[in-house]
């Protein structure tokens, strides 16, 4: 006679516990961690290049780059002036807390202010795996279309910051900003949003100010 055993345990709980450990290491070193997610081609690496170039004079930055096979993105981050660690996921569609833990061990955390984790380009899987970073940042881009919040609710629900990139293309593509924002608002009311163009630089100063303020807050908060 089988016995029914109640469990009620979240299936990604093990990853969550490791993510908490990663968070502890970042907090101990007073490093702000950002998890940057987007579909392929939305502009993750371009945003990182801009951010590193703009802030590397004032902040000590590192980038952990998740890629399925190549080191192209890590090379670009390094060329822009950041310490870059490459994680090849070997086909996995997302980074998880274990992979990030391995990368953290290679970094001199006490001598860093800001760590940007560039997740694998994917709007589904990375949403489920917490890494231990302080903020989840999603880059949407205008050419992807205004339906993305409706099609990838898991991703849009879980982020703290949203960038809408490639706004310089708004005159040329069909993108209903009101419809996009309405979908976002239903899933993630009041999420901090920046409309930017990594090509023209429009909107980036507001994003950079937010990053600097978040770094300063982290250093104060942990002091």
């Amino acid at each position: 006679m089988p016995q029914r055993v109640p469990v009620v345990e979240n299936i990604l709980g093990a990853n969550d516990r490791l993510a908490d450990e990663n968070r502890g290491r970042l907090d101990a070193a007073r490093v702000l961690g950002l998890n940057l997610m987007a579909s392929p081609g939305a502009g993750k690496t371009s945003l990182i290049e801009h951010t590193v170039r703009a802030l590397s004079g004032r902040l000590r930055l590192a980038v952990i780059d998740g890629d399925i096979a190549t080191s192209l993105d890590a090379d670009r981050a390094a060329a822009a002036g950041a310490t870059a660690i490459q994680i090849n996921t070997g086909g996995e569609c997302h980074l998880d807390a274990v992979m990030v833990r391995g990368a953290l061990q290679q970094l001199d955390l006490p001598n860093l202010d800001l760590l940007i984790v560039e997740n694998v380009g994917n709007l589904v899987c990375p949403a489920s795996f917490r890494l231990g970073t302080h903020h989840s940042v999603l880059i949407a881009s205008v050419p992807e279309g205004d339906d993305k919040p409706y099609k990838y609710p898991g991703m849009y629900r879980g982020v703290d910051v949203l960038l809408i990139n490639k706004i310089d293309l708004l005159p040329y593509v069909e993108f209903d900003m009101a419809r996009f924002r309405q979908g976002v608002e239903m899933l993630n009311p009041g999420v901090r949003t920046f409309a930017v163009s990594c090509r023209t630089g429009e909107g980036l100063p507001a994003w950079l100010s937010w990053v600097e303020a978040a770094v300063a807050e982290r250093r104060r908060g942990a002091a």
Partner: peptide
């Protein structure tokens, strides 16, 4: 109205197991 919020649908957990003696 478009002022709506998600109430259910993002669960993912093991609810129970059946174990033989």
């Amino acid at each position: 109205s478009s002022q709506v919020r998600v109430k259910a649908g993002d669960e993912f957990f093991v609810e129970s197991i059946e174990v033989d003696s």
